[in-house]
Design a protein around this nucleic acid. Structure first.
Lengths: 186, 186
DNA sequence: GTCTATAACGAGATAGAC
DNA sequence: GTCTATCTCGTTATAGAC
């Protein structure tokens, strides 16, 4: 039971550093050189552990993408009134579990990478957005959902605050922003 | 009075296309090749009209950045209760006047460009964020302000809807999200 | 598993003809 | 003003020693 060391493995360290830099500077804005320098190894070592830069990205985002698919599946059977609250809490928790990856998955990526690993993401974010809007097709509700969704993923990477405080604040702002009926005690 | 033609000038067309592509794919994610192809000219023509890629970016963002500075200056003398409402309407209007540029200015840029043209932007967005929070230093208020601010700029570039409808929806969601006191009739 | 060296490619930018 | 051709540099990726 001594597996939780500071330095697990070079491979995991590469993933950690890459996630951080992709989120901060974007996929294109981050070079293998940058990642290698931060990890403390050479570019060649990166490419020994991963087939290429895109493979790092794919492996990085896979767990969060899978959890997003799970969340969307869990939301599907809920009725229009319950789906919004469940979407907010489920997504905030997901994003807090994957702070760095969230921004990479939600923003930026789909435009310049059509790999199978990312092809399924757009429908998922669309479904999540609809859930945030309480399945309303009102323009105001859709726009509000988009604002909240993109706002959350953008903010969470740069915020230093602890998870519990951040969670409460994000759930709170999402509820208020998406409020169409008076059901909360905040 | 016949200046409003479809094709004003190559120079303006370059600015228009660059703004669009920077917003969609990011500054680093857009090559001069990409811009030239969309404009229908060569890379050399781009560099005849502008000193370099960064000069395109600087000229592109200058008007919106100046307006942002003006807005922050207008907000400064307002008291804590009035500043929030003024910030919301002022910023939404600003963003709608500069849909494409807004995302470029608010996100992404500061990390990889420390030129004088952009050095002053971070303090401005910080001041705007404080205004959104009603100058509160409560974590919840600050986080809410960040969510709304980043959400607005992210959403506005991809939204197809007309300005009036978009404006009403954005102001509405911002007011609800930042609501700390009951003063609105929405 | 990690390194140095280098190949292969694409990017921003320049030169000079038209 | 716009082009083709070219230069230079940074990037991804490979080869081969240790």
């Amino acid at each position: 039971m001594l597996r939780a060391m500071a330095r697990v493995s070079t491979r995991d360290e590469i993933l950690r550093v890459a996630a951080e830099q992709f989120a901060h500077f974007g996929y294109k804005g981050t070079s293998l050189q940058d990642i290698a320098a931060e990890v403390g190894c050479s570019k060649a070592t990166l490419l020994y552990h991963f087939a290429g830069k895109d493979a790092i990205l794919a492996e990085l985002t896979a767990p969060a993408a899978r959890e997003l698919a799970d969340l969307v599946a869990r939301l599907a059977p809920l009725d229009d009134t319950a789906v919004q609250a469940a979407a907010i809490e489920g997504f905030v928790d997901l994003v807090l579990r994957h702070r760095r990856e969230a921004k990479v998955i939600y923003g930026g990526i789909p435009q310049f990478l059509q790999e199978p690993a990312f092809a399924g993401l757009l429908p998922l974010t669309d479904a999540l957005c609809a859930a945030f809007a309480g399945r309303s097709t009102e323009p105001a509700a859709c726009i509000a959902a988009e604002v909240v969704l993109s706002g959350i993923v953008t903010v969470v990477i740069d915020e230093e605050r602890e998870a519990a405080e951040l969670r409460a604040a994000l759930v709170g702002v999402a509820r208020r922003a998406l409020l169409t009926r008076p059901d909360d005690k905040d």
